[in-house]
Design a protein around this nucleic acid. Sequence first.
DNA 1: AGCACGCCGACT
DNA 2: GTCGGCGTGCTC
Length: 749
Amino acid sequence: MSLDATVVCVWLMSGFDRPLHYRLPDSMVENAEPGSLVNVPLGRRQTIGLIVEKDCQPDLPLMQLKLVLNLVYPVPVMTPALLKLGAWLRQYYGASIQNVLETMIPGPVRQGMRAKEEKYVSAVKEADAETLAALEKRAPKQAELYQFLAQQFRPQKKSLVLSRLDASPAAYTGLLKKGLIKEEARKVERVAYDDELGDVEYASKQEIVLNDEQDACYRSIAESVRAGKFTTHLLYGVTGSGKTEVYIAAMEEALKAGKSVLFLVPEVALTPQTVGRLRSRFTEHKDAHAVVWHSSLSDGERLDAWMALATGTARVVVGARSAVFAPLPNLGLVIVDEEHEPAFKQDETPRYHGRDVAVYRSFLENVVCVLGSATPSLESYRNVKLGKYKEDRLTKRIDDRQLPMMHVVDMRIEMMRTRKPVTISNLLAEKLRDRWEKGEQSILFINRRGYNASMLCNECGHVEECKHCSIPMTFHRSDNTLKCHLCGHEAEPPWRCPECKSDSIRGKGSGTQRIEDVVKSILPRASVVRIDTDTMGKKHLFREILGDFRKGKIDLLVGTQMIAKGLDFPNVTLVGMVDADLSLHVPDFRANERTFQLLVQVSGRAGRGDLAGEVVVQTFTPHAEPIQFARRGEVDEFLEVEIQSREQFQYPPFRHLVRQVFRSRNGDKAMFFAEQFARKVEARMGNKIEMRGPTPCSIEKMKDHYRFHIWYFTQNVSGLMRVLKEVEAEVPLPKDVMQIFDVDPMSVS
DNA sequence: AGCACGCCGACT
DNA sequence: GTCGGCGTGCTC
C-alpha cells in the first residue's frame, strides 16, 4: 500500500454517531471532496455517508482503513461553509450526526435519486413514399406512428405518443431500429410552484422606485454587501412600509455582483404575496432564476431544485426554514423576513431556529444577513441595542395610510352590564353592522391560543401563576389541578380569585363555531365565512375563501390568527379581536411578546386607501402591557419594557434553555441518575448555569414511566453541551434509563 | 442504526 | 439435539 493514500473523514447516515475514516481509491482522489456523498462499507453492510474532511489524520493504522466504494453524485452536495454549519448544529443543538444530515440534506438527495429523464421522439425526415408504402403493408402500426410523428413540429414525449396512438413499445422499437425516428432523453425541469401559489397575482416587472427611507435602508445594506463582510442588519419597518422593495433592491445588488441569495420566510403558504413578488421578479432574471423551497414539494421537485442550486443554475432561494441549508455555492446575501415569527423554530430535534442558523451561516460565509420585521423579536432588538446588529428603519407606510384607531373593550364591564357571558361586545356589534351597511368588509379574529389552559378571573383579570417561575399555570381538567409546565409545581385550583375574592375564576374561551353563530345572529343577512384548522387543511377551500373575500363576495371573515399573517385585503376597514388576552396566559415566556405581535399585525390589516381602519380589541385585561402599548402603537417602548423585565428576572431568551429529560419505568433509579448527573454538571459549569430540577416537583408521571426534567439556563450552550457529553461518558446510564436533550433558545412552554 | 455473536429456554 | 428469544458490542 502506498504511503500517500488519501484518507477522508466520513459522517455516516446510519445512526453511528462518530466520524469514521476511509481511504480513497486512486480513481476517486480527484473528484471526492469534502461535501461529497459517498457509499462506504460498514461492517458487512454498505451505507451512505458524507465526506467532511479530506487528507486527514486517521486514528487507526492506514491498512485498517477500508476503501470508499463510490461517489453518489459527481458534485459535492454541501459547500465548505455548510459543513461547518453542520458541525455547529451537532454541537450546539446536541444532535446526532444522523439528525444533522437528515435535516441538512433533503431525503431524495440522500437517497441518491437522479433527475428524472423523459424520452422524446421525433421523425427523421428522410422517409420516401416507397418505404412508407411498404411500411403500411407490413407494419401498419409503425406506419401510423411514423406519420403521426412526421406531422409534429417538435419532438414529443414517448410515453404520451404511445398512449395516445395506443401503440405498443414493439412498434416503437421497430421504427427506431429502421432509423425512421430518433429518440432523445431530456431532463425534466419540474416547476414546483405553480399549483401551490397559483392564485398569487404576479407583480409587474416595473422598476422599483424607493422612497427616501427605503433608499436609505437599501444603501445601508448595499454598502455592507459591497464591503463583503459579515454584518447583520435589522430592517425594522412598520407594516406596509415596503420592506419587500428594500429586499429586492438589496438582492439585485448581490446578484449583480454574481452572488446568490437566500431568502427565508416563516411559512411559504402564509406569505404568498411576498413569495409571489419575489418569484415573478427573479424567476426569469437573466441568469439568477429563483427556486421556491417548501415542505409540500414532491421528491422530484425537491431534487431538481437542490441540483439547480448546487450547480449554480439557480441563484435565488425563497423558502421556509429548511431552505437555510440550501447548497448555494457563492452566497452573497441572506434575508430573513418576519424574523420574529415562531414558525422559524423547528419543534423536533434538532430544534434549530431558522433565524439563528441564518445568522450563523452568514457569519461562516462572511456575508450580510438582513432580518426584517415590524415587531422585532426581543433578542434581535436587544442585539441592535448591544451594537451587534445595524438597524435600518422604515417609519412611514408606503401609501401614507394612517395607522388604524384601536378601541379596547373591557369585557369585565361588558359582562357586568349584561349579567351573562358575552361573546361580542356592543361596540363591536355596532361597528360590524355599520360596516356591513356601508358595504365594507370586516375580519374577526378569534384568539384560541391557550384556550381553557389557564385560570383567569372574569372580574379582575387575575391569572394564577407559578410561585417559583412566574409563568401562568396550566389547568388540567382531567385531575383538576394546576401545573407549572416549567418546574412541574402543582397546586389546587382556587375557588375564589385570590385578588378580588370573586368566584368567577375559571378557564376561559369561546370556540370559533359559537362566535360564528353569534355573529350570524347580529348580521343575519350578511355573508359570513369561518376559517379554521379544518378549512386550512384543505388548500383549495382555503384559497377559494380568501379569493372570494378579496373579490368582495364575503362580508365578514371569521377565523383564527392564521389569517392575520401576510395577507393583505384592500377593502377591510374593521378588524375585531375576541379574547385578545388569551395568548397572554399561555405558559410561555414569550406570551407578552406574542400577544403584542399579534395585535400589531392585526392592526396592520385594517384600513383602505386613505381611509384609516378601526380595530376593536375585546379583553378582560385591558391594562396588560402588550395591549396598552399596542393601542398606542408604541413598539420600541414595549420592547424596552419587556427587555428590562427579562433582565430583571434573568429569563430566557437572553439565555438559552437546555432541557434534559431522564425517562424510566423505575422512578427511584432514574431519579438517582438524574441527581447524580445534575450535580456533576453543576460542579463543572460553576456559576455559568442556573438549574431547576431534579426536585420532587420536576417529576412527571406518564402512563407507565416517570420523567425527570432538568432545566439548565445558560449563555454558554456549547460549553454546557460539551460538559453534558463528558458527564454522560463518565456516568453511563443503565439501559432502563433513557435520556433526551433539548436545546431551545425560544420557547419554554 | 444494523448486524453479528452468544447465551439461555422450549420444541421436533 | 436445534431453533429462536433479545442482551451486548462493534463498525474506519
